[in-house]
C-alpha cells in the first residue's frame, strides 16, 4: 500500500520540481564545460527535444532504442557483452484466440453471478498468456466483486506492471484501482489512484 502511494508523490515531484531543481543545481555548479543541447546520439534515436521540453513528465526516456534485444553499441565494444537496456514500454500483446474465448466465458460466468467459475476460467487463461493485461483486469474485477479488495488491488497492480509504458492501459488500470479503493472505503487512496489515471 505504501508503495502505491509513492507514485503520485513521485510524479508530482518530477513535474513541479524539475525546473526548481534545475535552476538550483545549475546555479551552484561552476560552468566549466558548456555543452550544446543539439548533440544527438547517433546510435540511439531519442525523442525530440521539443517533446521533452513541452512535456516534462515524459522525459524519462533512456537513450536506448526500445528494441529489447539491444546490447549497447556494437561498434564500440564488439566483443564485450552488455546488459540489455530494458524497453521503455512492454509491447502490447497480440491476444490468442484461446485466451479471447476464455475471457469471453469468464465474462458470461460473471454475468450469471458465478464468480468462482469465472475465476477458474481466467486463471486458465493466465496460464496460457500470463502477460495478457486483460486477464488481470478481469481477474481484479472478480476479486472486487468478491469484496476481496486487497487482492483485487494487487492483481490490478500486477496489470500495471505488465502495461508499463502503455498510457491507455495504464489509465484503465489506475481507474480500476481507484474504483477498488473507493469500494473498500479508502477515499484518499481512490482519489490518488484517479489522479494517476488522469495523468495518462
Amino acid at each position: 500500500m505504501v508503495l502505491t502511494l509513492k507514485y503520485p508523490a513521485f510524479k508530482l515531484f518530477r513535474q513541479l520540481g524539475l525546473v526548481v531543481v534545475t535552476i538550483l543545481f545549475s546555479a551552484c555548479s561552476t560552468i566549466s564545460t558548456v555543452n550544446q543541447p543539439t548533440v544527438e546520439d547517433k546510435s540511439t534515436p531519442a525523442p525530440t527535444t521539443n517533446t521533452a521540453k513541452s512535456d516534462p513528465s515524459r522525459v524519462t526516456s533512456s537513450p536506448a532504442s526500445t528494441n529489447n534485444t539491444t546490447y549497447g553499441d556494437p561498434e564500440q565494444t564488439p566483443s564485450m557483452p552488455v546488459v540489455p537496456v530494458a524497453p521503455k514500454a512492454n509491447a502490447p500483446i497480440k491476444q490468442n484466440p484461446a485466451v479471447v474465448a476464455l475471457i469471453d466465458t469468464a465474462q458470461q460466468q460473471q454475468q450469471k453471478g458465478d464468480l468462482y467459475s469465472a475465476q477458474s476460467s481466467l486463471q486458465r487463461a493466465q496460464r496460457i498468456a500470463p502477460r495478457d493485461p486483460q486477464i488481470y483486469y478481469e481477474l481484479a474485477g472478480i476479486h472486487r466483486n468478491l469484496h476481496d479488495y486487497d487482492l483485487a488491488e494487487q492483481v490490478a497492480l500486477k496489470g500495471v506492471s505488465i502495461v508499463q509504458g502503455q498510457p491507455q492501459q495504464l489509465r484503465r488500470f489506475w481507474s480500476l484501482i481507484a474504483q477498488i479503493r473507493s469500494d473498500s472505503g479508502d477515499r484518499k487512496g481512490a482519489s490518488q489512484a484517479q489522479q494517476i489515471a488522469d495523468r495518462y
Binding site: T22, F25, S26, V34, N35, P37, V39, E40, D41, T44, A46, P47, T49, A52, K53, V59, S61, S62, P63
Partner: peptide
C-alpha cells in the same frame, strides 16, 4: 545523451 541532462545543460 539523456534528454534530462541535455535540458540541464
Amino acid at each position: 545523451s539523456d534528454p534530462v541532462s541535455r535540458s540541464l545543460d
